[in-house]
Amino acid sequence: MANTTQALEAPAAARAKPSASLWSDALSRLLRNRLAIVGGVIVLGLLLIAIIGPYIAPFPYQSQDLDAVTLTGGPVAPFRGAHILGTDELGRDLLSRLMDGAQISMTVAMVVQIVVLFIGVPIGAAAAWFGGRTDSFLMRFTDVIYAFPDLLFIILLGVAFRETFFGQAMNGLLLVFVAIGIVSWVTMARLVRGQLLSLKETEFVEAARAIGVSDFKIVTRHLLPNAIGPVIVAVTLGIPSAILSEATLAFIGIGAQAPRASWGSLIADGQNYIRSQPHLVIFPAIAIALALLSFTFLGDGLRDALDPKLKGKQ
């Protein structure tokens, strides 16, 4: 606000300072949001671990330290010896397995959101753009998917395809990605439809039509740039629920196959030792919570940063 007032008061002859572009503006607002920064840094860290994890992990995720297990007669406790976070009952290093799990969770996060974008955005845009019967049909279809219990649908899909090539592909993960994506696009479709519907009626779109701007340019210059903020926010905020869905599925045994383990299946494996060796549950749970929180903080920060109406307000 201070910026604007200053420039307005400046003599007309003085070359007004060019306003920052919208995106760099949003970035500077994002950078002022500490919680979002913390979230963003953790997200970047998790991504880094997902990519280079196998190279920096202290042990390969599947290798067993049988000596250590024999010595303790069960899972190795954390903060002692070579295994910083301890091992599971088979002597596999928990830290290394968590780092491998990060790869699965981050892949889920990305792939599911891509599936969501590819299904949700076109369906929502088509419903809004064509209106009428197309709109009714697409939205009723969306309602049907929405009304169906998500988890039940994913489990049914998982069970039905478990033995097929599709179910086995990518160590069983492809099925999980697609299943979660298929139930999650609904919100995106509704969001995009709502955004475009209200934008279609705005006076600046009418003004563009009055000027004679082509339909294509109206969509690309006027509709999409105004809808992209909420879409980015929805994608970011959709990631934690995708991670959570994957963890839930892994917990009940759908998804990553042994010896690979996602955070959810680590918790499932660890629950047998929850009294004697609670670290087997606690550390994966911390990993999940950390990922969910940081994506949520980042998403909230993005929402605040991308809404130009909030600009200048603290």
Partner: peptide, 15 residues
């Protein structure tokens, strides 16, 4: 032929 709108907030693309 051109048009001037009522709402000075809605008639300019905020982006």
């Amino acid at each position: 032929m051109q048009i001037i709108f009522q709402d000075p907030y809605g008639s300019l693309n905020p982006r």
